[in-house]
Amino acid sequence: MDENTLIQLAKKGELDAFNQLILMYQDMAFNVAYRIMNDEAQAADATQDAVISMYRRFDTYRGGSFKAWFMRIVTNACYDALRWQKRRPTIALEPETDDGERIESPYWLEDNEAKPDEELEKKELEAAIQHCINALPNKFKTVFLLIDVNGDDYETVAQSIQRPVGTVKSRLSRARQRMQKCLQGFGELLPDIFRLNAKNDDEQVTEPIP
């Protein structure tokens, strides 16, 4: 059955049709949730909450991209969970230093000698990127994850966040700027392509950029 048919059936209360729709997009939803929560268990909880919420108010779905609607509910569920966590701090899962400071990116302290270099590099990059994603403001983070990580188009994301395409464009641009700036701090951990410093003398640039 195609998506539209499933949606019509789900609106009538067909649980199986609803579950079919969930199965179609749950990986994408969980991936976004994971990138926001940075924790698999919490991402799973947020995704489950989002599914329950969707079922509860499925009759309020007014059409448009179901994927966009799903992503919106998932991201909202994630931010709600993060707000709850702020009010009720839990035991840090991240290791801490002797002074009690969290080590946000412990990956680099792991013993990676046994891992192949390429895989190691990928892990390092992912960790650095995730670190910078965590530092983004929520409204930039959502747009950045949906477009650059999920691969959605601007129109779908505009439906998700219920804003015009121009807002999506602006927020994504600012998210990318911040990501670049954040990634610079990782220096040698990053591949050359991410470094904004000129590598060779040939790359000296003197003209101003307006």
């Binding site: 579950n19 199965l23 992912e126």
Partner: peptide
Amino acid sequence: LPKHKAPRNFIL
């Protein structure tokens, strides 16, 4: 970036 797949089904 590696896509994190759902660890389980979230159907109701």
